[in-house]
């Protein structure tokens, strides 16, 4: 039972902290057994007051401090012991303390993902596990991606393929790495002309594909009631342009970042199936995006459904 909740929490963290650009894909190294369902909700609040124009970190008083709030409901189900299905649908709200541009709010992207455990064997005093994850997300409302930095998301379909490796000692400490390729489609702007090192006579904007990698070091405590983890995440678009001098970003930009994250999760002894989680993250380098720092809080509840 604990394992399932851990799985979910890990999943939530993976999704919650990567909501803006890394897509809502599970990163963890755990599975739920057949017939189990988990419902969860994560609240996230993140800010930046500097952004990278290309690689130049700058301020803009006409944005001031940028804020993004998100509420993300999610459902995870064990189809078999080796294959899990995960769906989520975040609601996002953006605003800025400076300038006169209006923030926006609404449903962001509906995400569905399948995760399969491919390998599990005992190695030394722990276990080695390998997972693969196939994810798909698509905009869930008609939000305009070409309204940066306020837009709710990148406005395109995304197909992601991820490999996850986990080595966990029986005593609790674990190390996990994952890498993903995220193939993104095109988003539709409302203008039919834009500049991207050339003039484009179309409203179709290609959103660059991206690579996402994460390394995490964590451990379980108190008979697996508490888990604490630190992660390093790197995100790199494989193509795209830089934001032009003192100009707005656009969905065709090359977005990169590196981020440190701290995460903790706790399962209650007295309420069966209930868990809480909290995290904080900070970007320490990037390109063509705001330097976000944010925290998240989540509640999870798991039960056997069939």
């Amino acid at each position: 039972m604990n394992l399932k909740l851990k799985f979910l929490s890990l999943l939530l963290v993976g999704m919650g902290i990567s909501i803006l650009t890394t897509a809502q894909t599970p990163l963890d190294g755990l599975m739920m057994p057949k017939g189990d369902i988990c419902v969860a909700v994560v609240y996230e609040d993140a800010n930046w007051d500097k952004y990278w124009e290309g690689t130049y970190l700058r301020t803009n008083q006409n944005v001031g401090t940028f804020n993004r709030k998100m509420v993300m409901p999610m459902i995870v189900g064990g189809i078999t012991d080796k294959i899990n299905l995960i769906v989520s649908l975040p609601y996002v709200k953006t605003s800025a303390s400076g300038g006169q541009l209006a923030g926006v709010e609404g449903l962001q992207d509906f995400s569905i993902s399948l995760k399969a455990q491919l390998v599990e064997h005992t190695a030394g005093k722990g276990k080695l596990k390998v997972f693969s994850n196939l994810s798909f997300s698509t905009p869930a409302s008609n939000y305009l991606a070409d309204y940066l930095p306020f837009s709710l998301g990148f406005g395109a379909n995304e197909l992601g393929l991820r490999a996850i490796g986990l080595y966990e000692l029986d005593k609790g400490p674990y190390f996990r790495i994952s890498g993903a390729y995220l193939h993104r489609g095109a988003t539709q702007a409302e203008r039919d002309f834009y500049y991207e090192d050339d003039a484009f006579y179309t409203s179709t904007m290609d959103v660059p594909d991206a690579l996402h990698a994460q390394a995490s070091l964590g451990s379980w405590f108190f008979q697996k009631k508490l888990r604490v983890e630190a992660s390093l995440t790197s995100f790199r678009c494989v193509s795209g342009s830089d934001i032009r001098a003192y100009n707005s970003p656009q969905p065709t930009n090359k977005v990169d970042f590196d981020r440190l994250e701290g995460f903790a999760q706790y399962y209650f002894n007295n309420v069966k199936g209930l868990g809480v989680l909290a995290y904080y993250n900070h970007m320490f380098s990037g390109r063509n995006m705001g330097q976000f720092s944010g925290y998240g809080l989540g509640l999870t509840y798991q039960f056997n459904a069939f």
Binding site: E190, N247, S248
Partner: peptide, 8 residues
């Protein structure tokens, strides 16, 4: 947005 024709 179609007619914005602003900067850039």
């Amino acid at each position: 947005n179609f007619w914005n024709d602003g900067l850039n």
